[in-house]
């Protein structure tokens, strides 16, 4: 998409036609592929330097898979991922390993993502060792500096993950991902497992780190209120595809896609007067299986505004905004 506007220089990451299929196989001795789970099925977007792109959508729509395929933790089935103009999908071995320093991931579950047998110091310091960035005393100092950066007491280095609360563990995970001075971070639901009163602490921390270190984020979440708070632009995903992408104001003020409209109308608002008057767009049924998605527009089976053409043709990914204020949508209504 950004190739259409001349500002290529500020683009850090460009994803084009990204597909990630997982094969379903049958048979014990001779494995035959019988179908594909189309987890990500042709996704294109770009992220500018210092920007936060939010990625939202319901469970199983392919958000995490998109993040992993970008970082080459999964090798994409098709498509291109350009990081600072360099193609990642063809990169291998040492080159890829070195490239990974620039791109890190923060995970949803602060309990499962930290090795319980390592001290905080070793968890945070490990990437420094792996990438030969610092050893011995220098490493120790860097670890303490990182702990301070994420609001933890540097004196915690010798403690183990189980001695910390969920929010503190998430801070440890963030410190670890920052150890190698990355430019780009995929934050995969970094606050979903935390208590409401702790979520704001972590979101503020991520925002502070972004402005002090100039980080670029892909922020994956299903909480639309929080996504709007932290994102500059937001992409909405449904069943492996993007349905809409625009800035955080337009998405909430004039959502174009019927799915985005339904999603927004379902978010509860902490005000009983508003809730009493609210008209919800209630979606019928469930999300179809990514193995056998509906023909044409894959949202049509639940869409309150589906037309005949929706079953026949896949809607085009169109910019309904202006070249300056892009508003991308994939829907036959437009």
């Amino acid at each position: 998409m950004s190739s259409e506007n001349g500002s290529k220089k500020d683009v850090l990451l460009e994803v084009k036609g990204l597909k990630m299929y997982f094969p379903i196989t049958k048979g014990i001795i001779i494995q035959r592929k019988i179908a594909d789970i189309k987890a990500v099925d042709g996704v294109s977007f770009s992220i500018k330097h210092g920007e936060t792109l939010g990625l939202v959508g319901e469970s199983g729509c392919g958000k995490s898979t998109t993040g992993r395929a970008i970082l080459q933790l999964y090798r994409p089935t098709a498509g291109s991922v350009l990081f600072e103009g360099v193609e990642l999908t063809e990169m291998k071995g040492e080159t890829l390993r070195r490239q990974r320093r620039e791109m890190q991931m923060i995970f949803q579950d602060p309990y499962a993502s930290l090795n319980p047998r390592l001290t905080v110091g070793n968890i945070v310091g490990e990437p420094l060792e792996v990438h030969n960035l610092a050893k011995g005393k220098e490493r120790q100092e860097r670890v303490q500096e990182l702990l301070k950066l994420v609001g933890l007491n540097p004196y915690f280095v010798n403690r183990y993950p189980h001695e910390f609360s969920g929010g503190q563990r998430q801070r440890i995970g963030i410190a670890r991902s920052l150890a190698v001075n990355p430019k780009f971070i995929v934050a995969d639901e970094p606050i979903s497992a935390l208590d409401v009163s702790i979520q704001a602490q972590i979101v503020n921390l991520l925002e502070d780190l972004q402005s002090s270190l100039g980080l670029t984020y892909l922020f994956i979440a299903h909480d639309l209120s929080m996504v709007r708070h932290i994102s500059d632009r937001i992409a909405v995903m449904y069943l492996g595809k993007l349905v809409e992408l625009t800035d955080h104001i337009a998405l909430y003020e004039e959502p174009l896609h019927p799915y985005t409209q339904a999603l927004l109308s379902a978010v509860p608002i902490p005000d009983p007067y508003i809730e009493e008057k609210r008209q919800r767009i209630v979606l019928e049924g469930d999300v179809p299986s990514p193995t056998n998605p509906p023909s044409g527009c894959n949202f049509r089976t639940r869409c309150p505004r589906a037309m005949d053409i929706c079953a026949e043709k896949d809607p085009e990914w169109k910019n309904m905004g202006t070249p300056e204020n892009e508003h991308w949508v994939a829907c036959h209504l437009y």
Binding site: V196, S197, A200, N204, V267, D271, I274
Partner: peptide
């Protein structure tokens, strides 16, 4: 009050900064 303040609201303009409840339970 702290709980209400610490979550952004979809129907309100984008807040500049969230107000967390400090500390832990």
């Amino acid at each position: 009050l702290g709980l209400l303040r610490s979550v952004p609201r979809l129907d309100m303009g984008k807040s500049k900064r969230l107000i967390p409840i400090d500390g832990l339970p």
